[in-house]
Write a protein that binds this DNA or RNA. Structure first.
Lengths: 112, 112
DNA sequence: TCGATATTTCGATAATAGTCGAAATATCGA
DNA sequence: TCGATATTTCGACTATTATCGAAATATCGA
């Protein structure tokens, strides 16, 4: 799963991790790039680079709304990542494998 | 939490992710460096670099056993990472925050 | 269509990370 | 103590990633 390396690499940066956490906390309504840039206080071109990185890894989804591009966290990507990390954990000793968030019907589902 | 960036960065590499997953699957008994090197087919010096990276990030723990150094996965580090990623998720809409593995009393606990 | 707003792409530069052979360190058994 | 085994540290090189200003693209309202 080279996708897992890409997702982890996308999160392994101060600014990108901050962006992702903001979007996780915001929920399915998402935030425009401008709001995020203001929150982080970095140049637009730098933010754009990081948003593209997160999107390429499937961790965020971009949708246009007028002149703004709205970014939303993809919770399922995190679930998949954790499932992959913990796959066949611990020589068969039972572990919780519950999804962290978002995959239960009726709760804030986001396209995978 | 710069520790989260460090942990994510430690996992964001083909070889280190493979090492970590092997140790997750091995459980608390752990594996010596030599076994891991053989499984991955990379030079000792390269593996040593990656193991040190994982250890620095708190994802694996090293203990000596004779001439061998045994490495063990630290499940709690992953739990902490996921908790941090999903903190205050989704504008208060309820989410599962169960630990993935290893923090329940009686099940394969590893020092944090 | 034009000017303003929102965001991305480009290009150059600076910084960090990965690779691997060779030498160093630690432990063991004889 | 000595030779063998297990692993790490060092050093030099290459490759990848981050940064940010300036120019390009997309959308809107008038």
């Amino acid at each position: 799963m080279p996708a897992a390396v890409e997702a982890l690499g996308a999160l392994a940066h101060k600014h990108r991790l901050a962006v992702f956490r903001i979007l996780v906390q915001t929920g399915k309504s998402g935030k425009p790039a401008s709001d995020i840039a203001q929150a982080l206080d970095i140049p637009n071109s730098s933010l754009s680079f990081h948003l593209a990185h997160l999107a390429r890894a499937g961790l965020v989804v971009q949708t246009r709304q007028g002149r703004s591009l709205i970014y939303t966290a993809n919770y399922n990507a995190v679930n998949a990542l954790v499932a992959y990390l913990m796959e066949n954990c611990c020589e068969g000793i039972p572990c919780s494998t519950d999804a962290i968030c978002a995959t239960k019907p009726g709760l804030h589902e986001v396209a995978a």
